[in-house]
Structure formats: C-alpha cells, structure tokens
C-alpha cells in the first residue's frame, strides 16, 4: 500500500514534467520567432549606418593628418569598402549566419573578442547600478507609499525627482570634485590602480573603490525611476478590496505592506527591470565617459564617430539578442510571480 507522500509524488510528477515540457516548447517557439526579428534588425542597422556620410577610412586618414591617394585607395580595398553596398550587406549577413561578427579594422581585432574584453566592466557597472537602484527603489517606494502625503513621502519624492532630473554627467563630475579632489577618499576614474600589481583581496578592494562613484552615479538615475514606480504601484494595490479584507482580519500595517501588497506591487518593477537588463550592453555612455570606465557603451559611442561599422553592428546585434532573451525571461518570471498569468 503506497504511503501518502508517495501518492502525492506520483500525482505531482506528471504535472511537473508537463510544466517543464510546456516551458521548453514555449522557449523553442519564442526563439524561432526571434530569429527573423534579429535578422531584420541586422539588415536595418546595416542600412541605417550606410546613411552616415564618410567612412572609417576618412576618419583614419583624417586622424593621420593626411595621406597619399594610393594609401587611401588601398585602405578602402582592405576594409572591403570599395565593394557595392549589396555585396557588403551579403558578406555581413553571411558572417552573422555563421556567428562571426566580423573584424574591426580600426582596432585590428575580431569584433567578438573586442566585445568580450569590454563585457566584464560593463556587467560589473550595470549589475551594480541596477542592483542598488532596484533594492533602494523598492525600499524607498514602500516607505513613501506607507507614508503617503506625509513629510517623509514628500522628501522621498523630491529626492527621487531631483536625481532623475539632474544630468548624469554633472552628478558624476560633482561627485568627483567632492570625493576625489576635495576629500581625496576615492579615485577619480579608471577601473583599478594600474601598475600596482595587486592580487586577490587587495585587487577586489581596489576595484570596489573605483566602482563606488560610477555605480552610485548611474544608480541615482535608475533609483528615481524605481522609487516612483514602486510608490505608484503600492498605492494602487493598497486600494484593492483584499487589502481591506486583510486589515479587517486584524493584520498589522507592516504585515499588510510586506506580505499582502508588496508581492503584487512588484509586477511593474519586473517589467522595468527587464527593460533595463535589455539595454545592459549599451551601458551608460555618459557615466563611462566621465569616469573613464572601459565599458561597451563608450566602445559603441566611439565606433559611431570612427565609422567602425563592423564593431557597431556587432554591439547592436548582441544588444538586440539580449532584449529578446530578457523579454522571454520576464514573461517566465511573470508567471512565477502571478499564477493567474498564463504562458503562451
């Protein structure tokens, strides 16, 4: 005679397998659907970049302060820029189909390794900033909502608005002036102390010290978004009947806020998080520029002015893939947070 737990397991297992299968099927379907989208984006990006006047050779020769016509012609041939646009597009798509992102003639490196070399710095900065912003945003948003129309709410809202409205580069420069130039507590830029030959724990502390200012600068901007969103979302959920029911049952204000309201109020936050993770690769050009942070945002930004189209297309393509993936993950998370949402 089977025990109760065994019955439960035998009852659960097919259910569990079915769920996994369903998710797997969903993933396959979504990824198949994503292929033409990504391809379309690639073609569109390529054509869009053709509209920019001048090319990589113009820039290189301009920087060199002049060159002979033979030199200019040779560079164009080597970069493949002497070919008609359809041929260039065909070559590019053929490369992408074999997962080859091409070669950056400006940096003399394959695009893929160039992007990989900048990826850690980008992830560190963005994950740090979004992590801080999300956590602090939830806390501040909850605080504001629980004290709605009281002084604490006003203070949180004003601070959030100020952080949102102040230009990022200006905040960055002011933080540098205060903490690096005047107080001399933190380094003004870069990612580590070059030439100090640090390792292990010391290296980590060194990188952390360099991270503080750029991460906080960037987080301040996102923080405002999350705080505003969290506050609005909490207030909306507070108005629903089940919250009144919970109060009627005698639940304390803290229990109502954290147990009943918070979870439901988190849904819009997840949407926002998904959006921002999607733009992760773009990094933040301004913060990276002000703090000399070696991230992908600056790489892409400079690629625009250098007409380094292979590199720019590579970064744009990866970004579009990341957006697609982030969207799928957010959908899955929705279903997890709110069982009423069905995956299709």
């Amino acid at each position: 005679m089977p025990s109760v737990s065994a019955i439960r397991r035998s009852h659960d297992e097919p259910c569990y397998t079915r769920a996994v299968l369903r998710i797997a099927r969903l993933l396959v379907r979504r990824f198949l659907r994503a292929i033409p989208i990504v391809l379309g984006i690639a073609v569109f990006n390529f054509l869009l970049l053709q509209l920019a006047p001048g090319d990589a050779v113009d820039v290189l020769v301009g920087e060199a302060g002049g060159a002979t016509p033979e030199y200019v012609a040779e560079l164009r041939t080597r970069f493949g820029l002497d070919q008609p646009v359809p041929v260039q597009l065909g070559r590019y798509l053929a490369n992408v189909a074999t997962l080859d992102l091409g070669y950056s003639f400006r940096h003399n490196m394959p695009v893929a390794s160039l992007i990989l070399s900048r990826l850690p710095a980008t992830l560190l900065l963005m994950a740090g900033a979004i992590g801080i912003a999300f956590t602090a945003g939830v806390l501040l948003g909850v605080t504001a909502a629980r004290n709605v129309r009281r002084p604490l709410d006003a203070i949180v809202s004003v601070v959030a608005l100020l952080a949102y409205a102040t230009p990022v580069f200006w905040i960055g420069l002011m933080l540098i002036l205060l903490f690096s130039v005047h107080l001399q507590w933190l380094p003004s830029g870069g990612m580590l102390t070059v030439g100090a030959d640090l390792a292990g724990w010391d290296l980590m502390v060194d990188v952390l010290r360099h991270m503080v200012l750029p991460t906080v600068t960037l987080a301040l901007f996102y923080l405002a978004l999350y705080t505003r969103l969290m506050r609005a979302s909490m207030l909306e959920v507070y108005g629903q009947d089940y919250v009144t029911t919970a109060r009627a049952k005698g639940a304390g204000e803290s229990r109502v806020a954290f147990h009943h309201v918070l979870r439901n109020a988190l849904l819009p936050m997840v949407t926002m998080l998904g959006l921002q993770v999607g733009s992760l690769l773009g990094g933040s050009v301004l913060v990276e520029t002000v703090f000399g942070w070696p991230g992908l945002g600056r790489l892409a930004f400079e690629a625009v002015f250098q007409r380094d189209h292979n590199l720019l297309l590579g970064i744009l393509l990866l970004s579009s893939v990341l957006v697609v993936v982030a969207n799928i993950v957010v959908d899955l998370l929705y279903a997890r947070l709110d069982p009423r949402i069905e995956l299709t």
Binding site: F169, G172, L173, I176, L177, S180, V181, S188, G189, G190, V194, T289, V290, F291, G292, P294, R298
Partner: peptide, 12 residues
C-alpha cells in the same frame, strides 16, 4: 590612462 572626458582629466 585613457580618460575620455576633458573635465574628468582636469580632476585627475
């Protein structure tokens, strides 16, 4: 060091 922003170079 590569410091792209001119004002940040002043600070450095």
């Amino acid at each position: 060091r590569i410091i792209p922003d001119a004002a940040a170079r002043s600070a450095a």
